[in-house]
Structures are given as C-alpha cells and as structure tokens.
Amino acid sequence: MATSEDQPAALRESGEERQPPGQKMGVGQHILDKGSSMLQSLKPVKQVSQHACSFALYGDDLSRQIETHHYISRLNQDFLQCAVYDSDAADAHLIGVEYIVSDQIFETLSTDEQKLWHSHAYEIKSGLMVHPRIPEMVAKPELENLAKSYGKFWCTWQVDRGDKLPMGAPALMMSPQATGAGVVKAELVQKRDDYYNISTDAIKGSRVEIEEPEWINPQADYWKQHDGKGFAIDIVRTDMKLRVPFP
C-alpha cells in the first residue's frame, strides 16, 4: 500500500499554483466562521506564543528540503508542541506537527524512540532557526534552551513535491546539519533571508556565544552515525479489532 515515499502522479500542482483545488469561500461561510470564532473559546490554539522559521529534511531523502514555520505552544519548561506550516501567510498549508523536548527528557526515552528524533544544536548555532521580528538579544536565552533540545517532526502534507492535497503516509523529518547531505541548500536559505530581510550568516556570527551541548545523543539524527539509514512509514492492510462491524 502507500508509503511516505510514494510519488502520486495525480494532483500535482502546475506552475506557480500553490493552493489546493476547491471553490472560494462564499460570504455565508465567512459569516459562519466569524460567528464561530466569537462564540467558541479556541483555548488550545490561543496558547501559541512563538513563531520560529527554520528548515527540515525528509528522513528518507535528505536532498528534499523545506522551509518550515513553527507555531509553538509550551506545556512546560521542557516540552513544546508545534503546528508546522509551509509559510507564515494566512493561506499557509498545515504540513505537520513537531514536538520538542529538553535533553533531560530525551535521555529518558528508549533507544528505539530516540531514533525518530533530531538534534537542534546545529540549527540554532548556524542561525538557520530564527524567530521573525524578535531581536537576537531578546531571543538568546530561549535559543540557549533550544540548542540543547531534540525534536520529532512528522510531515503530513508533502507540498514540496507538488501535492495539492495531503497524500500518502506521514514522513519523518530530520534537522539541518553541518556536513554532507545534512547541509541545507544555499538557495533555500537565501530565499528565506530575502523574505525576512535577514542574514543567516550574520546571525550565526552573533550566536557564537551560545553554549554548545557537551554531548548529542548518537541515536538522534540517526542517519549520521548509521550509514545513511533513514526511515519511512508504510500503511498496510490488517484486521481491525472490532466492537461491531466496520464500516
């Protein structure tokens, strides 16, 4: 059946058309939406308190790289949950979820679980992860925390290969690294830098004082120490444990 590596032929976008197919919203729907957001409290999404922009690489093909926009809410000092979009615009696609944990929590995970996570140290030190509109000086204490953290990112909509609707199984994503296939393409960084009018190189320079972790667990960024081994998700047929018949 499907795997996260599939390249479905249908539903590719043509040219610059980024948006999914579908009719424009009518006035009635706009009124309904407005009404709902007034009447419903939407508390969980109001907890979003940080926007970070960075890059991610597909865990089974590091040459496929994307710009990511993380909208982050915090459950405690050691745990963040992020809704990940492909841009910072109102019409951005929701492409996945990332969880971020401190090194203390990461070390409590089983080795099998740790394989699915990536480190953040390089992403921070290199200036690749930025908080748009926030001065570096203000962000520094949080960047120090993030440099020691690990992330687990599942991508559910492979917009970069042109999927106009979310297709196939989720893909495990990895973080940018300093060497080899983990290096983010210069043109991707340039595009981001131009959009925000920033310089990743200059930011890197300003982050030299951020402390590097003394140790990064080698189970994280699994491909680096395991001969380029990656991970993909398959969806396969099985018997469903039932209460009553389905469907």
């Binding site: 089974d60 081994k229 991970f231 969806i235 047929r237 018997d239 444990k241």
Partner: peptide
Amino acid sequence: GGLKTELRETEMAAAAAAASIPR
C-alpha cells in the same frame, strides 16, 4: 477493512550514506 502504520528502515541515496561521518 483495517489499516495500520509501520516503520521501515530505508537506505538513503549513496551520496547521503557517504556523507554520514562520525559526529
């Protein structure tokens, strides 16, 4: 019928493998 997800270890392209170096 039922469906389930499974994790599969993959071999990345040779270029990626060659580039994986001791940390």
